[in-house]
Design a protein around this nucleic acid. Structure first.
Lengths: 114, 114
DNA sequence: TACGATACAAACAAAAAAGTATGTATCATC
DNA sequence: GATGATACATACTTTTTTGTTTGTATCGTA
């Protein structure tokens, strides 16, 4: 598996590529919220502790560009936008689940208490 | 699942915790190499393209501190050090495999060719 | 006596990711 | 005419992560 590029950036392996799509501090928390229902921007904001509006917006944009969510804007005032997870997003959720369960397991093993 | 802390850092969820242990650019590539054999520092360096000696050293130290690898120093000159993956490290490999396969799948889907 | 081999440490710099603060648009209501 | 609601954009700053460069120790060999 040699290096390859996508959108100008060089990747060294498929793990890096995957994590560039769904990694970072906020993408998985966002996808997680959308996995079982459509949500508005403001709902996501209320539901995800600590996220700033800028992070929410930029991460949603990237998720949209990569086909993990779909954005639907209603031309009303005040604005209304809905975000829906796609098939691709649901596939990503499987991976998130794996990592999440592993995290819980590790935390237990390492004596981390929440 | 509320916030929690480990080593002074605050985490928002178990995924973040897991990725702080085995994420980043180099930890998975290192673990991957060690999954089926013991390796010396210099072997790892030769085997992992693009990694700098500083990154190799710091990441190995963190993996050691978190119990994913064991370091064995031979008191000879020139120095010789061997790194061995632990049970915990092997468990992490399962997760790496999942992410890796997902990455390959995504790349195919998104038309990325290596 | 200088040089090579190995496995680092430490100081510093650059790049990437995340966070903060302020501003915009539209229409309804007070 | 000012205010509030919603979903952003943009500029800027801070923090985190990654990379570069230089140096150290020891012993055998040229």
């Amino acid at each position: 598996m040699g290096d390859f590029r996508y959108n100008g950036k060089i990747y060294y392996n498929p793990v890096e590529f995957a994590m560039d799509r769904i990694g970072g501090t906020w993408k998985m928390p966002i996808l997680w919220r959308l996995k079982d229902r459509v949500m508005r921007y403001s709902e996501l904001q209320k539901d995800i502790p600590h996220i700033s509006q800028k992070m929410l917006t930029t991460q949603l944009r990237e998720l949209e560009d990569d086909g993990f969510v779909v954005r639907k804007v209603y031309p009303v005032v005040p604005p209304k936008t809905e975000y829906t997870i796609t098939e691709r997003g649901l596939r990503a959720i499987e991976v998130v689940k794996t990592i999440r369960e592993y995290g819980l397991e590790l935390m237990k093993e390492m004596g981390v208490n929440d």
